[in-house]
């Protein structure tokens, strides 16, 4: 029996290692390649030990290009979008969860269905609105565009989370003399904190990673990092070194952020899905 247990664990770990290889080899290859010269990068079998060079990074961050600006734009847009969607989503999600409206189910479904709109088809109408409001090429325009898919997501996620917070909590607080709104901020929001964090990370990720909206609604000066990545595929060659470095830079903030709040995220996600 003991023996079988050991064998089973060995098999499990072997399978786990395989899955990890599948998940991580591309990312490792990307990071390693970004530190190689182009000639080394193309060598097969790949060289695992080499003198790393950070020329590409140096060129990106301190060279003549605008990469730091791309990064700043990405950061501003994602953070502002996330903050906005979270503010609206937390309040609205609570309203949706507790509201008991006549058309609650329809409203709730309508909310989630707005996230399903196929992007290429909604770009023109959004463009028309934005150009009337002089928002083309502005950060505001891009924030609004990201709100179209992040707000429904935040609303929907938050409403599932709030449904899991027992209504007794806020009622108890109200008996203690809090107003409903105060009770909400003081008691309900903290109780749903893991859910809020999970939602925030996912919203941040969706905005940070978007390419299609950014390609149309940004102008020079407001372009984001995924645009920078796409520009490396040009008519006169693909700059693979920079592409790999840009990829590494794009995933880093998300990675750090995701790892920092991993516990919350897992708890948040399970809270939303488990009764």
């Amino acid at each position: 029996m003991q023996h079988r247990q050991k064998l089973l664990h060995a098999v499990l770990y072997a399978l786990m290692t395989l899955s990890l290889l599948w998940a991580l080899v591309p990312i490792l290859h990307m990071i390693l390649s970004s530190m190689k010269t182009q000639v080394n990068m193309f060598e097969m079998p790949p060289r695992l030990f080499f003198t790393p060079t950070f020329d590409v990074y140096q060129e990106m961050f301190f060279g003549r290009g605008d990469f730091p600006q791309f990064l700043r734009n990405s950061l501003v847009v994602s953070v502002v979008t996330t903050a906005l969607c979270l503010l609206l989503g937390v309040m609205g999600g609570f309203g949706l969860a507790r509201g008991n409206f006549r058309w609650e189910k329809d409203v709730s479904f309508w909310v989630i269905s707005t996230r399903m709109a196929p992007i290429p088809a909604v770009i023109l109408p959004l463009y028309l609105i934005f150009s009337k409001l002089n928002l083309i090429g502005t950060t505001t325009g891009l924030v609004l565009a990201y709100t179209t898919f992040n707000l429904p997501f935040a609303l929907w996620m938050m409403s599932t989370f709030f449904k899991d917070v027992p209504a007794d909590l806020e009622e108890a607080a109200m008996i203690d003399g809090c107003g409903k709104f105060r009770a909400f901020w003081r008691v309900v929001v903290p109780a749903a904190a893991p859910g809020i964090v999970a939602t925030a990370v996912l919203c941040l990720m969706f905005s940070w990673n978007d390419y299609l909206f950014a390609s149309i609604f940004t102008g020079r000066g407001t372009q984001t990092v995924p645009i920078a990545a796409s520009l490396l595929v040009s008519q006169s060659g693909i700059k693979w070194g920079q592409a790999m470095a840009t990829g590494t830079v794009i995933i880093m903030p998300m990675l750090i952020c995701g790892l920092l709040v991993r516990k919350y995220m897992v708890r948040g996600l399970s809270m939303g899905a488990v009764k």
């Binding site: 734009n73 501003v76 502002v80 906005l84 409001l133 002089n134 928002l135 083309i136 090429g137 502005t138 950060t139 505001t140 325009g141 924030v143 609004l144 102008g219 020079r220 000066g221 407001t222």
Partner: peptide, 18 residues
Amino acid sequence: VLSACSSGGNKPGSGSNS
């Protein structure tokens, strides 16, 4: 509120620029 909150916007066509 939205347009106020992101003054970082840099609209092509408007004369001023950072």
